[in-house]
């Protein structure tokens, strides 16, 4: 059994490890949440919730599991956010006049391209990067999540399926469609 100083040292070590882990993942997590919500404040809230839950409930788990756990929590928060938003839209959306009968799910396509300014002045590599980011932002949320977890976080199909709570087959389908969409975007780009 640990003595008091040993216990204190162990807690400090764990806090340092958690801090390093979260510091290493927070920017990508924020961008993931921002892609999904298109709102920086909402994204920060989701990342904060995921961090708090990881620290509160899973800090004692082996460090190697934190990544998958964090992404599982964040993914869950993102999907909750989308469900609640859809419910709100279903309940109260009709109070606001709608310009047309567009479906509620394709949130990203409704906004103007955030990177559309001064694009002619940018270098082609930079342009391509921005086109990729914009294309990722426009993906439907499940395709987006599958793509980001696989291509960016480099999770395996099985790990991605666990994080997303779906089958490996669904992950492959979402990922394939995301790749198709990205390829099409890049091909159509000037």
């Amino acid at each position: 059994m640990d003595t008091a100083p040993q216990h204190k040292e162990r807690v400090l070590d764990q806090n340092r490890a958690l801090n390093d882990f979260l510091a290493g993942i927070e920017r990508r997590a924020f961008r993931m949440a921002e892609f999904a919500t298109r709102d920086a404040d909402e994204a920060l809230d989701l990342v904060q919730d995921a961090m708090i839950k990881l620290v509160e409930r899973y800090a004692q788990r082996p460090e190697a599991e934190w990544g998958a756990l964090f992404h599982t929590i964040l993914h869950s928060r993102i999907m909750d956010w989308h469900r609640r938003r859809q419910v709100r839209q279903r309940l109260f959306g009709w109070l606001k006049p709608r310009e047309d009968d567009e479906e509620d799910t394709d949130l990203l396509a409704e906004l103007p391209d955030p990177k559309g300014r001064d694009i002619a002045e940018r270098l082609s590599l930079r342009q391509q990067s921005e086109q990729i980011v914009a294309a990722v932002q426009k993906l439907p949320v499940r395709q987006q999540q599958a793509f980001l977890l696989r291509a960016w976080e480099e999770l395996s199909v099985e790990e991605t399926a666990t994080v997303m709570g779906c089958t490996a087959g669904s992950v492959k389908t979402h990922y394939f469609r995301a790749m198709q969409a990205l390829r099409a975007t890049l091909e159509d780009a000037p």
Partner: peptide, 20 residues
């Protein structure tokens, strides 16, 4: 394409404004 996307996304994440 995956590598290219990863590089672009990394760059996008690195370029967060100071406030964020």
């Amino acid at each position: 394409l995956q590598r290219q996307a990863k590089t672009s996304l990394d760059e996008h994440a690195e370029h967060l404004d100071l406030r964020t």
